[in-house]
C-alpha cells in the first residue's frame, strides 16, 4: 500500500486526477458531542443563549464541506452535488450524534468533505453551547462508509466483519479466539444460560449456522436455536444463518420481539 499524497521522494504533492474517470462518489461520516444532561435539555428546548443550535451547526457543516480544500492542504476543490447533516439527540448517552453525507460525480472521493462537515458541525455545537457547558467532549469523529472510485466501496461495519488477514507469524501467536454468544429474554430462561463462550476452532463453518451447530454439539439443549422464529444479531445487526462471522464478533440469539 502506498500513500498517494507523497511523491517518489517522499515529498507532499497533490495527486493529478485529470486522467481519472468520473464516478459517483459518496461518503458518510459521524461524530459525537458529549455534554451535561442539562445542556442537552436546553439544546432540545431551544433555550440556549445563542439561539437555534442545530440549524446553525447544520449550515456550518455544509459550508465547511464546501471549503475543505482551503483547510486540508492537498485536497482538491470539489463541486459537491449534495451535503446533508443529521443530528440525533441521545438522552441515554447525553450527547448529540452528528452524521454528514456528501456526494458528487467526480474524480476524487468525498471522505474528507464528510469528515470536515462533521468536525465543524461538532465545533459549532461546542461554540453554541459553551456558555453553559465548557466541559463538552467531541469524540468518535470517523468515516462510516464511502463508495465509488478506484479503491471501491468501504464501510466500517464490513471492515469490522472481515478484518485483514493477520500478517505472517504474528497471527500464530494470537491467543485462542473465542466468540461471545448471548441469549436474551425468554430464550435465556429456557436455556438456563445468558452467555456462552465458544472457541472459534469448533465452528464447522464461519457463519451463524456454524455457531448454532457448534453449540448443539456442546449441548443438545441448543437445538432450540434451530426454531426458525429464533432471531440472531451479529454485532448488534440482525443476521441470518448464512451471515459470515469473524473471531471476536458478538452474537446474540433471542425470541421474536414484543415491544411497543
Amino acid at each position: 500500500m502506498t500513500l498517494t499524497h507523497l511523491n517518489a521522494r517522499g515529498e507532499a504533492h497533490m495527486v493529478d486526477v485529470a486522467d481519472k474517470q468520473e464516478t459517483r462518489r459518496e461518503a458518510r461520516a459521524r461524530g459525537s458531542v458529549h455534554m451535561q444532561a442539562s445542556t442537552l435539555a436546553l439544546l432540545a428546548d431551544g433555550d440556549l443563549p445563542k439561539g437555534d443550535v442545530l440549524a446553525t451547526a447544520r449550515i456550518a457543516g455544509i459550508q465547511a464541506a464546501k471549503r475543505t480544500h482551503e483547510l486540508i492542504p492537498l485536497c482538491h476543490a470539489l463541486a459537491l452535488s449534495k451535503v446533508s447533516l443529521e443530528f440525533t439527540l441521545d438522552a441515554a448517552e447525553n450527547c448529540v450524534h452528528v452524521e454528514a453525507f456528501c456526494r458528487l460525480n467526480g474524480r476524487t472521493g468525498v471522505e474528507m468533505e464528510a469528515l470536515t462537515a462533521v468536525s465543524v458541525a461538532c465545533l459549532t455545537l461546542y461554540d453554541m453551547c459553551k456558555a453553559v457547558d465548557r466541559g463538552m467532549i467531541i469524540d468518535g469523529v470517523r468515516l462510516e462508509q464511502k463508495s465509488g472510485g478506484r479503491s471501491g466501496d468501504w464501510s466500517r461495519q464490513a471492515a469490522l466483519d472481515s478484518p485483514p488477514a493477520s500478517s505472517g507469524e504474528g497471527g500464530a501467536a494470537a491467543p485462542t479466539k473465542t466468540l461471545r454468544v448471548q441469549f436474551l429474554a425468554e430464550l435465556r430462561e429456557r436455556l438456563g444460560t445468558g452467555e456462552y463462550h465458544l472457541e472459534w476452532e469448533r465452528l464447522p463453518s464461519p457463519d451463524i449456522a456454524g455457531v448454532k451447530l457448534a453449540l448443539i454439539e456442546r449441548d443438545p439443549k441448543f437445538k432450540a436455536l434451530l426454531d426458525q422464529r429464533v432471531l440472531c444479531a451479529c454485532n448488534e445487526a440482525m443476521s441470518q444463518d448464512g451471515a459470515a462471522i469473524s473471531p471476536g464478533d458478538e452474537i446474540a440469539f433471542f425470541p421474536p420481539v414484543t415491544g411497543g
Partner: peptide, 10 residues
Amino acid sequence: LKTRAPFWKK
C-alpha cells in the same frame, strides 16, 4: 418498532 426493535415483555 413492534417487529424489529429488540424489546421483550414479561
